[in-house]
Design a protein around this nucleic acid. Structure first.
Lengths: 161, 161
DNA sequence: TGTATTTAGTTGCAACTAACAACAAATTAA
DNA sequence: TTAATTTGTTGTTAGTTGCAACTAAATACA
């Protein structure tokens, strides 16, 4: 194997391991997020989508989150119960509801977001702008790759045990 | 705010969003892994640790995986049931078991690993070695940061709903 | 040596997540 | 107007994980 290919293979392996670890440890950071604030990870994502989009139908939220509408409905339930989101009946279509983040919800979202961004900032402060850009690109590419495969997914439910 | 700081803040935000997305979509890739192969994500991690370390006590595995020993025990249960791992009684300490990956387990692990590495390789093939290295470093740094916080975690169980 | 303590692992239980299916209500199509 | 579709909720089920209680073995110590 030529020198270059060997290097590429090594880098790919390193990247695989690095990403693996990252994703694994993120679970635990996320558990922190849960207990330091007032929302679970899924609830936080929902809050994020709603805050970013202004107002969403349940169906839309479910699609964005790649969750079943029933699950989304219950996630919204808990956010409503905590006062972060309100369900407003749609005037034009009375089946539908407009999910909207309350001021309290916006405040929480912004607080969490600011905290997490501050941490990232600390992390990359010492890097050159070029390196930062490149890293972000790699992470985005990883996501794109994963996303694509998610679409090709067999989609079925898991096997036994 | 000076130009540089603004740039840093923007990069931090971009990184935050990129990582967020990556982690989120990884869940779904992982679900794929489950249905395409024969193991859950946690089972796969366990297999990985065991394959890398040769043989482990349950306790050690639990620590590596940051899981409770009861959970680890059950993860091992399922791997044993599927024939990927064996529990061998320790001769010196009859309380203990040596968890060992079977040939079948090694084969599965290597197959999964090879697949995933091949994907990473494809992803970074067009990047310069320097950029690759930098990206890997950033991802590792992210992990280190998260890991550190995991240690400071409050560790308690969640609130209601 | 014999009792107490510690350690290794398993099992019971409860909290949580999320999907599928069945449903009610409203809307749209025929 | 009736049938089909769409929107969202609720019932049920499967699965993951941690804590606590337990058994059995090993070690400490008096």
């Amino acid at each position: 194997m030529p020198q270059q290919d060997l290097q590429l293979q090594q880098d790919a392996t390193a990247l695989y391991e690095a990403v693996n670890q990252l994703v694994r440890f993120y679970q635990f950071r996320d558990r922190d997020l849960i207990c330091c604030h007032d929302v679970s990870v899924t609830q936080c994502y929902a809050l994020e989508f709603l805050a970013e989009h202004g107002s969403l139908r349940l169906q839309q939220l479910a699609e964005l989150m790649l969750l079943d509408k029933s699950t989304s409905s219950r996630v919204v339930d808990s956010l409503v119960k905590k006062g972060y989101v309100t369900r407003i009946a749609d005037i034009n279509d009375r089946r539908a509801v407009a999910l909207t983040v309350t001021d309290k919800g916006v405040a929480l979202y912004q607080q969490i977001r600011a905290e997490l961004i501050a941490q990232e900032q600390q992390l990359i402060a010492h890097l050159s702008p070029e390196t930062r850009q490149a890293s972000i690109e790699v992470i985005r590419a990883l996501t794109a790759q994963v996303k694509q495969r998610a679409t090709n997914s067999c989609g079925t439910r898991l096997c036994s045990d």
